[in-house]
């Protein structure tokens, strides 16, 4: 579904050129959940913005279902890291979810049905007429996910979406993402810096290096589905996966600080 070949990105700043992404190749097959894990400051957000068509990349190519992605693609929906900033505080939950499809879906009834279905999918059917700032952080991120779902994309991109919620909420949201993707057979690319989260969600893990980003390793995950916060994370295979990722990231940050 998503193919990334030789992606590179160079920023031009006043003090010269900064290479944020050097060489990234990856593919995400249909129905697959791929997580992209890297240390903080690895240029993951730059990478994701390039994949989403928000940032023109300097080298390589991104293709979604065969189309070259140069600007935001209608089959791709993005869930932002900072929900307080990506949701419109002046619009209700319903309006936030509805707005992106207002011009794309002609029939009003179908639009409303889509919004209701998306909100029900994330368990927020009752909150439609409230404002985002009246909801907890976890609920706000559910709204952001519902907005992505109502867009009916073929693929969801997540940019460290749960970085600023507490541990319990985070676990709930992770399970929600797994449920929704399984239920809708959604393809997803999920960026995170949390090793557990990367391993728990993924069919495949792409480990990227400190900036300038390159792919350090691609690991297949053969943990059984459906997954469970307790049983999956206590499997020996899970521990083994963690112990393979951990050194890859740590060696990286040691190099970076040296």
């Amino acid at each position: 579904m998503l193919e990334v070949e030789g992606l590179g990105h160079v920023y031009r700043t006043a003090s010269g050129e900064v290479e944020a992404v050097r060489q990234v190749d990856l593919t995400v097959a249909e129905g697959e959940i791929v997580t992209l894990v890297g240390p903080s400051g690895a240029g993951k957000t730059t990478l994701l913005r390039s994949l989403a068509g928000l940032l023109p990349y300097s080298r390589g190519e991104v293709r979604l279902g065969g189309d070259v992605v140069r600007s935001p693609h209608p089959d791709m929906a993005l869930v932002f890291q900072d929900y307080t900033r990506s949701l419109m505080p002046w619009a209700t939950v319903r309006q936030n979810v509805l707005l992106p499809i207002r011009k794309k879906v002609r029939s009003r009834a179908e639009r409303d049905a889509r919004v209701d279905a998306a909100l029900a999918e994330v368990g927020l059917a009752d909150a439609a007429d409230r404002y985002p700032w009246q909801l907890s952080g976890g609920m706000q991120q559910r709204v952001a996910l519902a907005r992505g779902l109502a867009y009916r994309p073929k693929m969801l991109l997540f940019d460290e979406p749960f970085a600023s919620v507490d541990a319990q909420t985070r676990a709930d949201l992770e399970d929600l993402v797994l449920d929704v993707c399984a239920h809708l057979r959604m393809t997803a690319l999920f960026v995170t810096h949390d090793i557990d989260e990367a391993a728990y969600l993924a069919d495949r893990i792409v480990v990227v290096s400190h900036r300038p980003s390159t792919v350090r390793a691609v690991l297949d995950v053969d943990l059984p589905r459906p997954r469970d916060q307790v049983t999956t994370k206590s499997l020996p295979a899970f521990a083994e996966l963690r112990s393979r990722i951990f050194p890859l990231l740590r060696a990286e940050s040691a190099e970076a600080t040296a």
Binding site: L54, S71, M76, L78, D82, S86, L99, P100, R102, R147
Partner: peptide, 15 residues
């Protein structure tokens, strides 16, 4: 971030 959001979700100019 909000500007990115409107681009990612293909808001029209007027929207």
């Amino acid at each position: 971030v909000l500007r990115d959001m409107t681009r990612a979700y293909a808001f029209t100019r007027r929207e």
